[in-house]
Design a protein around this nucleic acid. Structure first.
Lengths: 189, 189, 189, 189
DNA sequence: CTATAAGCGAGACGGTACGTCTGGTCTTGTG
DNA sequence: CACAAGACCAGACGTACCGTCTCGCTTATAG
């Protein structure tokens, strides 16, 4: 995930990365970010502490990767998807318990630690933004692009992450309707 | 803040609570939630560790109280305020550096620890929600109340907390315009 | 036990001293000297911590008094007693569980703390020494007086305190025989 | 001193045990057993607290080892030594200020804590007993072996540890003479 | 076929902070 | 005044992790 994997020496264990990230997600759900320990991750994944440190330098790095790892496929939606599908992908991705804990942990740390902010911005926030932009492209709205990002991403975050509610079809349709007045079945005038 | 202050024994020091909460806010800004230590709070506020533990049982309790302590006046806007003023109060409240770190930390921990969830919900989230509700009441919108909460609170959270941007007048006006199509000078059709 | 009991104000509680010393002896047997806590003594005797501190300034003082309190009668053997009786009194005194713990604790602390040494010397060690001296006076021995003190007191200490054995009649008779060759029924030639 | 020194993992630091035991002895002399702190031992020996706890589980264990560490060479006297030499070795060993404080501390705790008693019995009392027995073997005495142990060890303890006197040649010769009436130059008839 | 290089588990190491407990002091009320 | 109650500063307790390090061993490629 990190090093360019030089050719000399014994190669890294195959499933080790996955085992570690799985452990991270499980422990995140159980104990939260501040209760997550490298020691615990190593124990849970049956790996030596040094093996974890060899692959990730920081708890924050590790957590970001753990989230990205599950989100990546969902970010890679087909290019011609309908706005509903894109939004549904985002909502579904963030609804996973592990993602929920991890995402909140990451943005919370990012507000305070520039390193985490940097990494989170490129690996988490930007892909989300692109998803929302592709959403907007298919929607007839008068709202400015930057504000639209705040409105759509914010509504999803508040609904799913902060309030912990399920992001069902009604929510998705309602949100799209709220930003696009002329949309069929929408709430606008 | 916590005990019913019985009459027996030596009474608690007068300014001690404030000294501790001040230290918490300062350290929150400097090191973030996970970097905040009770040991550090005690040292910074010139108080024995046991004195902190006597008054607050949990780091989360302490942090919630530290933030609520400064936010309360901001939440108490006059009852007949205009939506802009209410929204501005919310944005201002969340923009305080200490509040930003604390708010995110608290909702992040709340997702995992029911005790924190409980305390945060009543003391932090609910006041915010009431502010948003009073906002909605003064706005001519077609958006459903529950969704409107997600949209307004979410946009503010995303803009101010997640992206770390300043909540200036343009943002406030834009957001109100986005949810209220007929508003003068708004972005709607 | 300490203050000259002035006449002003509320008089000291009657049985309080005894309650405290009883608690000390009980706790000494249960937890030893280093495990003995003023906090624990106060709790056990149903007295406030400050009441204990008002009457004794030091844990060592308290312990010495607690032991002396029970030992005094045992040291007061009739002046014309036989050596056996005197030795038996000494052995009996040191065999009390509380005395055993306290005696060792006190001589151990005395080796390091001059204040303890002072108090222990006058109240505990000296009475023991006088008992041994009266013993020696009644024994027909060729051993020098000073060495005799080491031999008799040492043997008792080693047997009773260090090894924790009961000081029965056989031991008493054996010891007297060992230092007095011509004694009837003694072990010497 | 404790673990069977498995071969896995990073090996333990070479001089660390000695540095710790040295610190223990120094602090025992300065502050006594009850004033001895693991925290202080770690600081004094320039070692982390966890390193001390990794090697000894208990303050008592630590102190026992600190004493045994200085006594061991003296227990290993040549098998054909004269009684005087054996006794002199014992007296010299116990006369070191550190040994004095430590020995008293150990027997004092042993009277109260079975774990300490156990450890002290095997590592301290038994070797001492063997030393005294080898002493007895070279001495013509009529005193029973068990009582002889009490007399010789007791006299040494009382003279050196309790009274804090120097164990000079006169004391050694006098003690051997006291238990062996026919000895050349002895005090017996 | 031997170097050389890296991965890996294990665990020691110097640290920091934890949350608890006790010490000894002090400051209130009540008796 | 004595006393109980209890706040207060100070600091040790024993534990848990931190991130680094040193081992012995394994597994690869490169010469």
């Amino acid at each position: 995930m990190t090093a360019p994997t030089s050719r000399r020496g014994r190669p890294r264990g195959a499933g080790t990365d996955q085992a570690i990230l799985d452990a991270v997600r499980a422990l995140l759900v159980e104990h939260g970010y501040s209760g997550l320990t490298i020691e615990g991750v190593a124990a849970r994944s049956g790996v030596a502490k040094s093996t974890v440190y060899r692959r990730w330098t920081t708890k924050a790095d590790l957590v970001v990767d753990a989230v990205v790892d599950t989100l990546t496929p969902l970010f890679a939606a087909p290019p011609d998807s309908a706005p509903e599908d894109l939004l549904r992908a985002l909502v579904t991705a963030l609804s996973q318990p592990a993602s929920r804990a991890a995402f909140l942990a990451v943005i919370s740390e990012a507000a305070v630690d520039p390193m985490v902010h940097e990494r989170a911005a490129t690996r988490l926030i930007e892909p989300s933004r692109r998803l929302v932009e592709r959403c907007s492209a298919g929607v007839d709205t008068a709202i400015d692009g930057d504000l639209l990002f705040d409105v759509i991403a914010g509504a999803v975050i508040h609904h799913v992450l902060v309030r912990g509610l399920a992001g069902d079809e009604a929510f998705i349709a309602g949100l799209l309707g709220a930003v696009s007045p002329h949309r069929v079945g929408a709430a606008g005038s």
